[in-house]
Computed example of a mutant assay.
Amino acid sequence: MPRSLNLRQIEAFAAVIAAGTITEAAQMLDRSQSAVTRLIQELEAELGYKLLHRNGPRITPTERGVLFHVEVERHLVGLRHLRDRAEAIGRDERPAIEVVAIAALAVGILPQALARLAEGEMPRQVHLRSASAEQLAQSVAARTADLGVSSLPVSSPELTLHWSAEAPCVAVLRQDDPLAAEGVVQLRQLTGRRLIATGNPYRLRRRVDDALREAGVAPQAVIDANTSLAAMGAVRAGLGVALIEPVTPASFPLEGVVYRPVDADIPFAWGMVTAMGRPVPAAIRSLMAEIAVVSAATIRGLRSLGVEEDAVGPR
């Protein structure tokens, strides 16, 4: 069992993974190559397994190294968060906040909501990062993030859901696509077309597939994208028609593409979560209120699924 892991070892490992070579990692850390090599060797000896494959100057993580790096990233994020909060306390400032959101909400809704915060409500340090819904739930439950803005469901007894809403998915098309002239795209019109959709089969993708099946639509081919923005880029390149959540095209429009409602209600739900039992900072309360306002003003067909008054009440 590891007994004496230290921060220098952890930082050396993270730097090597980021840089890909001992030489570049040493430059990043302002240490000698031999010092970095020694720290990695000590870390591997302490853990009892190899973290890196060495092939000449290039370094790649082992399978265990990849898994360990996930934990290292989480650890370092927590340390940065702690440092920023400690410095804010020393300056008698509002504490730093950490917000994690799925990509669809991180690129549009969340920045707009932050921009609406009143003078004095925005902390000096704001950490905004994108993550999958599963990673987001882990971060908020572990209290390395103050607020999560996620697609639903997010089922965890360690989380409190403060506000949620849903809106129907849309079709995204190139501006010169014949279907762009339609007020509403009928799913049957996608028969024989290449479909672009987000790939997680356990979340929105399942509802998209079910709706196509019920409409008797068989796409000619399918491109899976891990984000809606990537799907929109594929549409702009002429690769097909996307069926995606409505938040990204409405809040982060991409030149050359348009979005249209479809004749099937394929709901996309999202909401805001914090750690169960943790006091919600004033800045987070204000931000949640603005997220609700921006969502309602931006997304056509939005249906509020509920607001917890003490979390996102009138300001």
Rank of each mutant, 00 (worst) to 15 (best):
M1Q: 11
P2A: 13
S4W: 11
L7S: 03
L7R: 06
I10A: 02
A15L: 01
V16D: 11
A18V: 04
R31F: 02
S32T: 15
Q33C: 10
S34N: 05
S34M: 03
Q41C: 09
L43D: 12
E46K: 01
L47W: 06
Y49D: 07
R54T: 14
G65L: 04
G65Y: 04
V70F: 10
E73I: 08
V77K: 10
G78E: 01
R85G: 14
I89D: 14
R91P: 08
V107Q: 12
E119M: 06
E121R: 02
P123N: 11
Q125L: 05
S130K: 02
S132D: 01
A133Y: 01
E134H: 11
Q138L: 13
Q138V: 15
V140Q: 04
S150F: 00
E158C: 07
L159C: 00
A165S: 12
P168C: 03
A171I: 01
Q186G: 13
A197W: 05
A197D: 14
N200A: 13
N200D: 15
D209N: 09
D210Y: 04
D210R: 05
D210M: 07
A218W: 12
V222Y: 08
T227S: 15
G233M: 01
G238T: 10
A242S: 05
I244W: 05
A250S: 15
P253S: 09
E255R: 06
E255N: 08
V257P: 04
A264R: 14
F268R: 00
W270S: 09
G271S: 12
R278I: 05
P279Y: 11
A283Q: 10
S286N: 13
S286T: 12
L302A: 12
L305I: 01
G306L: 05
P314H: 10
